[in-house]
Computed example of a mutant assay.
Amino acid sequence: MARETAQTDEAMIQRLRDVGLRVTGPRLEVLKVLSSGEHLDVEAITGAARARLGTLTSQAVYDMVRHFLDTGLVTKFDRPGWPAVFEIAGKPHQHALCVNCGRVANISVPRQELPDKRLRGWNLDSVEITFKGECPDCR
């Protein structure tokens, strides 16, 4: 287990370096929190990272997340009525959003065709579909 953690840490350190960000303890810890696979808002990220580091401000996490977004390390999912959530960038996927509690889950669906022909003059580069409903806990 310690070996797996060391390999994961090395991979995260390399990801930070690959995008030109300096490796710091707080940045590494925030990436570790995000690597859980959950969709987390800034307050949840701050709380989890603070539990391990001792001190960390929400503003520092906002700044880190902004840098991670700018460099493509993380992606953002906006949830109407709730704070945006973040996850480690990876393969393209869609999301399911619980309309009661705001929980977000990843869904892999076949690649969607872009409707370029129906949107004359537009230059589209991606498709984002959100499935909305009730999660198992809210049903």
Rank of each mutant, 00 (worst) to 15 (best):
D78V: 14
E128W: 12
G90K: 03
I129Q: 07
T24Q: 10
V104K: 04
D41H: 13
P83R: 15
K91R: 13
E87P: 00
D125T: 10
A6R: 14
D137Y: 03
T130S: 14
F86E: 06
G72Y: 01
E113L: 12
T46S: 13
W122Q: 14
E29W: 03
M64Q: 12
K91N: 06
R139G: 11
L69P: 01
N106R: 15
V85M: 04
Q7M: 10
E113A: 15
V104F: 01
Q14W: 07
R118M: 11
Q112T: 07
G90Y: 00
I88P: 00
I107S: 04
V23S: 01
F77H: 10
G133Q: 12
R139K: 14
E128V: 14
D9L: 13
A96W: 05
V30K: 09
I107Q: 09
F131I: 12
T55H: 07
P26V: 10
A44C: 00
H39L: 11
K91F: 04
F86L: 05
V42W: 00
R111D: 11
A44H: 00
G37W: 01
K117I: 07
V109H: 06
A6L: 09
V85A: 06
V127P: 07
L124W: 02
K91A: 14
E38G: 08
A49E: 04
V61I: 04
P136I: 02
F68S: 01
K117N: 10
K91L: 13
E4T: 11
E134F: 10
D116A: 13
W122S: 14
G72T: 00
E38C: 07
D63R: 15
V42R: 04
K76Q: 15
G37P: 01
G102S: 07
L97K: 07
V19D: 00
F68C: 02
F86I: 03
M1D: 04
D116H: 08
R3G: 08
M1L: 08
R79I: 14
L114E: 03
H95D: 09
P110V: 05
V65A: 08
L97D: 07
E4A: 13
D9S: 09
F86D: 05
E134Y: 07
F77L: 06
N123P: 03
K76E: 15
I88W: 03
E128M: 13
G54Q: 07
